[in-house]
Write a protein that binds this DNA or RNA. Structure first.
Lengths: 179, 179
DNA sequence: CACAACTATGTCAGTTCTGACATAGTTGAT
DNA sequence: ATCAACTATGTCAGAACTGACATAGTTGTG
């Protein structure tokens, strides 16, 4: 019944109480690397989670025309999240615009395709360097019971992904003939 | 104006004329590896492409209560597709349920997490073996102007992806402590 | 002091996407 | 002969998602 977005929100809330605004910020970074949502969607989903009793909030007088609401997991929310975590994931990433373009790339001018992949390669290398700097700041993997383990493990996945993508881009450039 | 799904359809049609049914089959395999759509969405999108003049069709008497319609690219459709191919892709995959679960995995029983990753690893190894068998059937990379190049290049991407994922699963299992 | 950026909430219209429902002829296996 | 699977089209309700609009106090910079 609860959507994956709902569990994404619960995952962030499990690390500490947040406002909807803070949740939206987390949905950009670091959660945005593997799940995204705009703030309008988050406010709507919070209403559903509230209705299902998985989260609660405390209101305080805040900036803007409305109360500031700090959301927290309920006991039931924690239980639901814990159960969801180890259920086999149904979906693997199934939409990838670059791969779709590649599927149709035989139609296009090779030089333009080459440029697109060169740009992609540069972007992947930049991102990998960022991730590596970020990884260094951890100073080794946290224990699997530590919330930081989640961040570290997803970062490692991101690093592997960037390496795989960069390698594929290099392979594509070799196929297309350099320059 | 045309959605990415529209271009996915045009990409399939560029390889030969198809019915909506055939397009839906292609959207499962092989296009489904990087872009998915149900047949209801495909019929709706075909109406839009028709309205935009990017595709046309020829009707013939067919099974079922309605005519069978064989769709084809128009000259304008080919032009639009060719232009789209080398425009920089805006999106990279941004929803990955397994990674989201990993982000919250510190909450769960390590043994259950371990099992989930062992299952994932097995699935990736199976898929990689399938892809490798498929790759062997190509007998080397087609030239970049050949439609089969699109299939081959996306398959290579899939192989790299499965390898990267399997490696990450193995790393996770090592972190969690084997069995 | 002015102005920008940030904090913080929400609505709303429109698009996309999913899954179920509906219909009906052809083909192949037992 | 019967039955299942396949070919082939489409609708529809509802959920998910995007991007714009709306409001307004606080904080920091020049």
């Amino acid at each position: 019944m609860t959507s994956t977005l709902g569990f994404a929100i619960l995952s962030v809330l499990a690390r500490g109480d947040r406002t909807g605004y803070d949740l939206a910020a987390a949905m950009r970074r670091p959660v945005g690397y593997f799940w995204t949502a705009g703030h309008s969607q988050i406010h709507a989903e919070l209403q559903k989670l509230l209705g299902a009793g998985l989260v609660g909030f405390e209101a305080e007088h805040g900036p803007g025309p409305r109360d500031r609401k700090v959301y927290h997991l309920t006991a039931e929310g924690t239980r639901a999240l814990r159960e969801w975590v180890t259920e086999p994931p149904r979906e693997r990433p199934e939409r990838d615009e670059l791969v779709l373009k590649t599927y149709a790339s035989w139609l296009a001018e090779p030089e333009l395709v080459r440029r697109m992949f060169a740009d992609q390669l540069a972007a992947h290398e930049t991102r990998l360097a960022e991730y590596e700097r970020h990884e260094a700041s951890f100073g080794g993997p946290p224990a699997p019971g530590d919330p930081r383990f989640g961040n570290y493990a997803t970062l490692r996945c991101g690093m592997g992904y960037e390496r795989h993508r960069a390698e594929w881009c290099r392979w594509m450039l070799a196929q297309l003939g350099e320059g």
